[in-house]
C-alpha cells in the first residue's frame, strides 16, 4: 500500500517525530517502497498458524512481592535535561 504525504504526516505525529515539510514527499516514497516490499508476505499461507511473540518457550515467572529497588532519586534525576525540586520538569501543560 502506498503512503501519501498526509499518511506520513499522521504517522510522524503518532511517533512524535517532527519531519520537515520538505522531506515529506521523499519519505513517503521511501516508506511506500519498504511497505510494498514487506507485502510479499501475503504470498505465504498462514491460515491456522498461531502468531509467536517470543521464541523463548518459557512462561513468565513471578518474583516475590517485595521492594527490591528504589531510594535513589538523585540517580534517577541525574541525567534529566531539566528538573525542579526533585521532579522531572517539562514545558507547562496546564494554563
Amino acid at each position: 500500500m502506498a503512503l501519501d504525504i498526509a499518511a506520513v504526516r499522521q504517522i510522524a505525529f503518532l511517533a512524535r517525530i517532527k519531519v520537515p515539510d520538505a522531506e515529506l514527499e521523499s519519505l513517503a516514497k521511501e516508506l511506500s517502497h519498504i511497505i510494498g516490499w514487506v507485502e510479499q508476505l501475503n504470498e505465504v499461507e498462514t491460515e491456522g498458524v498461531q502468531p509467536i511473540y517470543s521464541v523463548s518457550e518459557m512462561t513468565l515467572y513471578q518474583r516475590e512481592d517485595k521492594v527490591t529497588d528504589g531510594d535513589c532519586r538523585g540517580k534517577v534525576l541525574a541525567n534529566a535535561p531539566d528538573r525542579v525540586g526533585g521532579f522531572f520538569a517539562v514545558p507547562k501543560v496546564v494554563e
Binding site: 505525529f13 517525530i17 517532527k18 541525567n79 534529566a80 535535561p81 517539562v90 514545558p91
Partner: peptide, 20 residues
C-alpha cells in the same frame, strides 16, 4: 524528559517532536 537531548518547543508535544 529523563535523559539525553531536549530540543525546546512551545508545548509538551512540540518538545517531544522537536527532540525526536
Amino acid at each position: 524528559v529523563r535523559y539525553g537531548l531536549r530540543v525546546p518547543g512551545e508545548s509538551l508535544d512540540e518538545m517531544y517532536e522537536n527532540t525526536r
